[in-house]
Nucleic acid binder design. Structure first.
Lengths: 230, 230
DNA sequence: TAAGTGTAGATTGTCAACAATACACGATTC
DNA sequence: GAATCGTGTATTGTTGACAATCTACACTTA
């Protein structure tokens, strides 16, 4: 037999990770409000599993920082302050700058592959902008940046960025429809792509810095209108 | 009552985190050999707890990447390849560069506090170098860099770096006594401290880059003599 | 009325037993 | 003799029950 391929390996990944991934997706989609307690029994039965595996998954998300655990109290979904927003985007900037440098140091084939993927994402983004599907836009926004970092092939950088992406989506979620002007959003991503294609290091670095700075400004501009705590 | 202060809060932190911290320390001290399977029952009784809490702790360390979980097989201690070493130090460089920039953007008091701490660590390091206590040197080495990043106050950056520090100690552990020439090690840290005190941005950046580059060279120089896989 | 106290309910923390899976070793067959 | 098959053992995965803790609310008391 050549290879079992898709022959029901029935999820080779460990259970806790599967549950954690499901739960993370639920959280970034806003299925839980910030600061809300996560009820273990309820969630376990909802995900049709037991409390044991669920708790293991919760611990993973606590380690990520998406959930916070208080002894004998339970776990709660992270509440984002403006301080948190600044932190998150500062780290994102650091990671993306590192990714940019790594990419520009790598062979052009790898860069080309990444550019192809980014181009497709931008196309989809423009499509969703036309449809004003904010949830989809937020997803594609992070998908763009995740793909950018994934282009480096640095698994640790990628893992770190996955967490940052989740937290960013939680930030954006708080903004809700108050997403900044959208044409600018697409344009900024387009710009990053072009600098990468042109292999313009300093241009790419500046574009990333601007993009992050703008994002922080948008997210911290009207704290009273959002769920983000002062 | 003014404040209960140290009045037996009896570990407010969640259990899984406590166990995870213990276990992480055991791992970076080399209590387990790379690639070794972690036996749940044995470890649980050894740490005088049950399998439940222990498994939760293991999941945390899996999320960090210090352990790897294989379904229906168990969790194993991370085996480091030269590729891993390169990844780890690339991310460390990114994080420390970001920390450097953040520090130099902050007020001088914060920088002064950090410098004071770093100076003390270097003193201790020189002491241990005289005693040739490699285990202690490795600990102080990472303590220096952790303190450097902690100076930023960015909790996410700090958390990320804690994992990187653990992985770095696992790298150094593989090197064992083959630590590079020690006078240079102290000197390099001293240099970083001086650039920080002088608030010399580009000098500090270059020093960090050199430090990381040297470390990778040392760690990947003689792969046959170490436990690091090709 | 306001502060403090005690109880009830709910939720988390822990544990031990059960089920399922994978690995190792010996038996069997060609 | 080599490969394959079947069995046994050890380890992980899962579950439900029990214990400990916290929050909320009604009750008492100054």
């Amino acid at each position: 037999m050549a290879a079992p391929e898709g022959m029901f390996v029935l999820e080779g990944r460990p259970t806790a990770q599967l549950i954690a991934d499901q739960l993370r997706e639920l959280i970034v989609q806003g299925a839980f409000s910030p600061g809300q307690q996560v009820n273990e029994s309820a969630l376990a039965s909802q995900l049709s599993t037991s409390r044991g595996p669920l708790r293991e998954a919760l611990q993973r998300l606590c380690q990520e920082g998406i959930l916070v655990s208080k002894r004998n109290r339970g776990v709660f979904v992270l509440e984002l302050s403006t301080q948190d927003v600044k932190e998150i985007y500062a780290v994102r900037e650091a990671v993306e700058l590192a990714a940019a440098n790594t990419l520009l140091d790598s062979d052009s084939e790898q860069v080309a592959d990444t550019c192809r993927e980014l181009k497709g994402i931008i196309r989809n983004m423009a499509k969703q902008v036309a449809a004003s599907d904010w949830q989809a836009i937020a997803r594609l926004d992070m998908q763009f940046h995740t793909a950018f970092v994934s282009g480096t092939g640095n698994t640790r950088l990628i893992r770190i960025y996955e967490t940052l992406a989740a937290e960013s989506r939680m930030c954006i979620l708080s903004l809700e429809v108050a997403y900044p002007r959208i044409d600018v959003l697409v344009q900024e991503h387009q710009q990053i792509l072009e600098f990468l294609e042109a292999r313009d290091r300093s241009g790419l670095q500046q574009a990333i810095k601007r993009h992050m700075q703008k994002a922080v400004e948008d997210l911290t501009a009207s704290p009273e209108a959002t769920g983000i705590t002062a």
